[in-house]
């Protein structure tokens, strides 16, 4: 028995099966990300005045990542249009660029995560705070680089204007508390890691599907080109959704 509406749209909905399926899936994704965005907004407006951290993220790096994703959305559409124009080699080229962009995005995001996990806030016994990147850690001491030193409770992390030092050695006996900028550090970083890690998982998942359709899955072009083109459209719709989420995430997390 042949499954109907695999390629041609259903007359009543105007959609073929896979397109209806992906839009239902995207609707559930909107609810997932919508709930997290709502949580962010409520946490943000519920924070004490001046307590919400600013300047913790590297804006130029985030901007580059935004440009990478916008480029990948353009190439994914060009790949689909190439198939519509019966240009399989151009499809391969454009979809290849999309995959490179996806990998680049994940690499840049990993670097940002690494930067946060090596960024430490060290509260010393004399009430001073040293904020910098870990260079060396031993039982007797730690060494930080690009350090800002300020009094505890003076401003919020990221925008303090204390004394700046290139490198600083702190003896273990001087340390009262030491914590990196992981998701446990504060509410902002908790929601930042939750949202961006979930988004990165979507990027990896989307890239895996695109890679399959670019590689072994592309054999379908020879047997059923119309159905293959529809598959590319479906993967493109998901990719656009993932990129659109980032278009909202970037200003909310990095700028505001």
């Amino acid at each position: 028995m042949e499954i109907p509406y695999v390629v041609q749209p259903r007359p009543d909905t105007g959609l073929y099966n896979a397109k209806l399926g992906i839009w239902l899936f995207l609707a559930s994704e909107v609810m997932l990300f919508g709930a997290l965005f709502s949580s962010y907004i409520l946490l943000r407006i519920g924070a004490a005045p001046g307590a919400w951290p600013h300047g913790l993220l590297n804006i130029p790096i985030g901007t580059v990542n935004t440009l990478v994703l916008i480029t990948s959305s353009i190439t994914v559409v060009m790949a689909w249009a190439s198939l519509k124009l019966n240009q399989f080699n151009r499809f391969k080229m454009f979809q290849g660029i999309t995959l490179v962009c996806a990998m680049l995005f994940v690499c840049i995001k990993s670097y940002e995560y690494y930067d946060k996990f090596t960024h430490y806030e060290v509260i010393m016994t004399d009430g001073m705070v040293a904020d910098g990147h870990l260079v060396e850690k031993s039982d007797t001491h730690i060494t930080l680089k690009h350090v800002a030193v300020f009094h505890e409770g003076e401003g919020t992390a990221g925008d303090h204007h204390g004394e700046h030092r290139e490198e600083m050695r702190i003896e273990a006996a001087q340390i009262r508390k030491m914590e990196n900028y992981g998701p446990w550090h504060n509410t902002y970083l908790a929601i930042y890691f939750t949202l961006t890690a979930l988004h990165a998982l979507h990027v990896i998942g989307g890239a895996a599907v695109i890679a399959y359709l670019w590689g072994p899955g592309s054999r379908m072009w020879k047997t059923d080109p119309e159905r293959f083109t529809n598959r590319i459209e479906i993967s493109g719709l998901f990719w656009h959704f993932v990129d659109l989420v980032w278009i909202f995430l970037f200003p909310v997390l990095y700028l505001l």
Binding site: G14, L15, T66, V77, E233, F241, L244
Partner: peptide, 23 residues
């Protein structure tokens, strides 16, 4: 077709353009 990739791409490019000017 509002559910086509073309329509979604137009929405995406519009959002990206607004982000660019806003940024």
């Amino acid at each position: 077709d509002p559910m086509s990739l073309k329509a979604f791409h137009i929405v995406f490019i519009t959002a990206s353009t607004l982000l660019s000017f806003g940024f």
